[in-house]
């Protein structure tokens, strides 16, 4: 089990990470989610032993202070894989096994198994330069898993890939991590990636831990407006507008409400009415922006497309909104 207690990292007098305390149970995947500059990568590097930090970082109760990176028994995987370009795929994966003096017959078998696990059986003799971005990330993952690290550190593992591939690889990554029973700490700025891969999320802002919990916990109750927007809520309404929307949803009043894009559904019988500002077709639904009376602009979905300027009725889906800070 990894535990961080009041960890801070300072460079040249500037605090990059401040007083972060976290725990990561064996077999769990935790995402450190935050915008760029939030200190998440720095924190990961501190766990890896690549940055010096104050506070306590410990594994199974034993402090890691002074333990150099190569003796921590962790593995690190970067955004762009960082495959050793002068070695073949098989030799990249073998690299950590060689360091652990695993016998060569066993090495070969493990390479084959690992490459099969990441879906790249038969790629043993290819050079990294001949692989696509997604394939390189898979090799990097196989290499990181090769010696069954106590903890796998993933630094934006999917960010360099294009959208479609990213989504597919995120699903694969989750499956592979769970099949291998790996404990992993993943840094990402992309909430979709965090939700797709991890069990728990820790939200960082300006070097401080803002919120942590399971996906459901974080999603259901973002700690404040900023957290709600960063987690993927489309808008946050405050004051009277929030009151109006919550009342229409049949919920208790609160100071603010975070709305997903599909929190409002066009429904002639709905309790709220407004004027369509714009409408855009997507393969599944029509997405509207509607100016609600007494509330202002909100996003809504509809099955048919009303023209801009048309009046529509909207109902609220209570499971698609959240009360920040509740």
């Amino acid at each position: 089990m990894l535990s961080l207690s009041e960890v801070s990292v300072t460079y040249d007098g500037e605090t990059a990470v401040e007083d972060v305390s976290l725990e990561l149970a064996d077999g769990e995947v935790l995402a450190l989610l935050g915008p760029s500059g939030s200190g998440k990568s720095t924190l990961l590097r501190a766990v890896a032993g690549l940055e010096s930090a104050t506070g306590a970082i410990s594994w199974d109760g034993r402090a890691l202070r002074g333990v150099p990176t190569h003796k921590r028994g962790f593995a690190l995987m970067f955004q762009d894989g960082q495959l050793f370009s002068h070695l073949t795929v098989a030799n990249n994966v073998v690299y950590p096994m060689r360091l652990r003096r695993i016998p060569s017959a066993e090495r070969r078998k493990r390479v084959d198994d690992l490459l099969d696990l990441v879906g790249l059986g038969g790629y043993q003799d290819r050079l990294p330069g001949t692989l696509s971005g997604g394939e390189r990330q898979r090799v990097a993952l196989a290499r990181a898993l090769a010696v069954e690290p106590r903890l796998l550190l993933l630094d934006e593992p999917l960010s360099a890939l294009d959208a479609g591939l990213r989504e597919r690889l995120a699903g694969d990554l989750r499956r592979i991590l769970h099949e291998a029973g790996t404990t992993a700490l993943m840094v990402t700025h992309d909430q979709e990636e965090a939700f797709a891969v991890s069990d728990r999320i820790a939200l960082l802002r300006d070097g401080r831990l803002v919120q942590q919990g399971t996906l459901q916990e974080v999603w259901a109750a973002p700690v404040d407006t900023w957290a709600a927007l960063f987690l993927g809520y489309a808008r946050v309404l405050e004051g009277p507008a929030a009151y109006t929307v919550l009342k229409a949803a049949g919920m208790d009043p609160a100071g603010a409400v975070a709305l997903r894009r599909s929190a409002f559904v066009a429904d002639p019988a709905g309790p709220l009415t407004g004027t369509v500002v714009s409408a855009r077709a997507t393969p599944e639904q029509h997405r509207l922006v509607v100016r609600l009376d007494d509330v202002g602009e909100v996003d809504a979905v509809a099955d048919s497309a009303p023209a801009p300027g048309e009046r529509v009725g909207l109902r609220v889906e209570p499971n698609r909104l959240a009360i920040p800070g509740s």
């Binding site: 590097r45 890896a48 690549l50 003796k71 690190l76 970067f78 960082q82 652990r100």
Partner: peptide, 21 residues
Amino acid sequence: DPRPGEAAAALGAGPARVLWT
């Protein structure tokens, strides 16, 4: 780029081995 070296260190390579490999 220091990251391949860091990746190797994280995989268990000591400083001399990172330098050499």
